[in-house]
Structure formats: structure tokens, C-alpha cells
């Protein structure tokens, strides 16, 4: 395994029983120190992938390496180095935050009590309230606290804010953002809420059709995918001679083309070829990027 990678999956296949595979020959490479946003439509298999990475499911075929070790069966030593928080993660509701910490702390040699206190203060969590009496957002924060207090090398978050309302979600993401800025650990964040991912991640993996169809640093991706607006005197031409075009949208006297592998300045040549009177280049956000790639993948 490449030592620069925190996670590497090769030709990963995962199926439940005789059903069609949820993951079908998936390759994934998560660089150490990155915040990797795993995105995909609902039901595409993000949670299954995360659970395979966490060693909860054995892969049907292929290999998965996490922090240099086989993901399944995960050794105790590996689990000590990985923090995990899922969307539906249920903890013991009768325990208070303090009791949960007392229960879990002895399992981790690297548990940092002072860091726990510091994080808890920062997150504003009551220490002596049972988890069952906390709000959803607070319970998720408690889960995050437990995941972070052992100072893991890898933090895996599976749709951590999906069940929260907008305000709580924003608050939760801000908390995570603060922590990530401070700690610089490797993070895998699975979510279908793309603005959250865009705020947190520096690498993106798009999961579709059982495979990672795109994996790249977010900045590079944004640099390479642009939306180009051509303006015409009359109707736009029927034929658009742009090989990198991902999608076209025709308007009255204008044409919007989303292109990949964009190189600065190339739009002038396209303008001339199509006889456009003006051309503008715009950036795209992660949501647009995602829609372009997923719809392209489905079309292909």
C-alpha cells in the first residue's frame, strides 16, 4: 500500500446475499491528512462502503486497507486509531456523557482526558445529562466527542448531520470545521448534503453505479470544470464543437456549456469556431459538479 494513503480499496465488491452488488469493482484512494468527501445519491451505497471500511462487513471480493492494515477483520490496534460517527449511531441512552466517557476511555490507550474536557466545553455539552435527554444535535456532538477524544489518526463520519434540522446541521458542521482546522487528521466524510461537504472537504470521491466515478482534490476539480456562456446574435448553432462538453443548455441567443479539463484561454478558440459574439467563463460549485458527473455517468 502507498504510505501516502490512509485508505486504499482495490476492485472492491460488496453484495448482500444473492442480490446485485452494491459496490462493484470499486477503487478508492484517500490521501493521508486529507478531508475526503464521499458523495453520492441516496441509496447508492455510501453507508455500505463506510461499513466495509470500518470492518463491520467483510467485502465480497477485492481488498481494503486502512492505515496500512486490512480492514476486515479489523484488529483492536486498528480500531484504536480510527474514530467513527454514523448518522444512526445509537449510544446507550441511559448513560450520561461523563459515564459514556468513563465506559469508553479505558478501551483507548490514547484517550486524552484533557482534550475531551476541552472539546466538551467547546461543544457546550452538559456532562451529567443522560444521552436520551439530549437533543439530536447534542447526541451527535457527543458521538463526535467520543470519536475524537482518543485523538484518532482517521476519523470516519457517515452522514453525521443528515438527521438534523438546518440550524443544528449548520452548528454541527461549524463544530467539525473548527476541529478539523485544529487537528489536521485524515477525515472521510460521507454525505449527500453537498454544501456541507464543500465547506469541509479538500478531496472528493463521487460514488455512482457501485464505483468511485471521480476522485480528485476539490480545488483541482473546480479548476478543471467550468461553465462557459456563449452569446450569439441569432440562434445558437446546432452543432457544438467542444470535445470536453459535459452538458449543454440552450437559451435564446445563448448557449451554456459545462466543460471538463478546462485550460485557461481555450474559450477564445471555441468562440471563434462557433461565431459567438461574446464568451464568459464561470466556476461551478460542488452541487453542479456532482449533478454533471452523475447525470453523465448515468447517460453513458
Amino acid at each position: 500500500m502507498d504510505p501516502e494513503l490512509a485508505i486504499e480499496a482495490r476492485a472492491l465488491v460488496m453484495r448482500y446475499g444473492d442480490e446485485r452488488p452494491v459496490l462493484d469493482g470499486l477503487d478508492m484512494r484517500v490521501p493521508r491528512g486529507s478531508v475526503y468527501g464521499l458523495i453520492g445519491r441516496n441509496g447508492v451505497g455510501k453507508t455500505t462502503l463506510i461499513r466495509v471500511l470500518m470492518g463491520l462487513f467483510p467485502p465480497t471480493a477485492g481488498s481494503v486497507t486502512v492505515l496500512g492494515e486490512r480492514a476486515f477483520p479489523a484488529s483492536v490496534a486498528l480500531r484504536e486509531r480510527v474514530g467513527y460517527l454514523s448518522q444512526e449511531q445509537r449510544m446507550f441512552e441511559w448513560m450520561t456523557v461523563a459515564e459514556l466517557a468513563r465506559f469508553v476511555a479505558p478501551l483507548y490507550p490514547s484517550w486524552d482526558g484533557r482534550y475531551f474536557d476541552e472539546l466538551r466545553d467547546g461543544l457546550g455539552l452538559p456532562l451529567n445529562w443522560p444521552l436520551g435527554r439530549l437533543s439530536r444535535g447534542e447526541r451527535q456532538k457527543a458521538g463526535l466527542l467520543i470519536a475524537l477524544a482518543p485523538r484518532p489518526d482517521l476519523l470516519v463520519l457517515d452522514e453525521p448531520a443528515a438527521n438534523l434540522d438546518t440550524v443544528l446541521r449548520r452548528e454541527f458542521v461549524d463544530s467539525v470545521l473548527d476541529l478539523l482546522i485544529r487537528d489536521g487528521m485524515t477525515v472521510v466524510l460521507s454525505s449527500h448534503i453537498l454544501p456541507d461537504v464543500e465547506r469541509l472537504a479538500d478531496h472528493i470521491g463521487i460514488l455512482a453505479q457501485g464505483q468511485i466515478v471521480l476522485e480528485a482534490p476539490l480545488d483541482a476539480l473546480k479548476e478543471s470544470v467550468k461553465r462557459v456562456r456563449f452569446v450569439f446574435d441569432g440562434d445558437p448553432p446546432a452543432y457544438v464543437p467542444i470535445d470536453q462538453a459535459m452538458s449543454l443548455r440552450r437559451g435564446k441567443r445563448e448557449l451554456l456549456v459545462t466543460v471538463r479539463d478546462y485550460v485557461a484561454g481555450v474559450e477564445a478558440a471555441w468562440q471563434e469556431r462557433m461565431g459567438a459574439t461574446a464568451v464568459e467563463v464561470h466556476g461551478v460549485d460542488l452541487e453542479d459538479l456532482f449533478v454533471e458527473y452523475v447525470t453523465m455517468e448515468v447517460a453513458e
Binding site: L56, E80, R90
Partner: peptide, 14 residues
């Protein structure tokens, strides 16, 4: 049954 298995089985326990 209680849904806490995922929490427990992702802890460093045998």
C-alpha cells in the same frame, strides 16, 4: 436489538 452494536463493534474491543 438496541441498535448499539455499531457503536460497540467499532470500538477497540475483541
Amino acid at each position: 436489538r438496541h441498535g448499539t452494536h455499531e457503536f460497540m463493534f467499532t470500538r477497540p474491543i475483541d
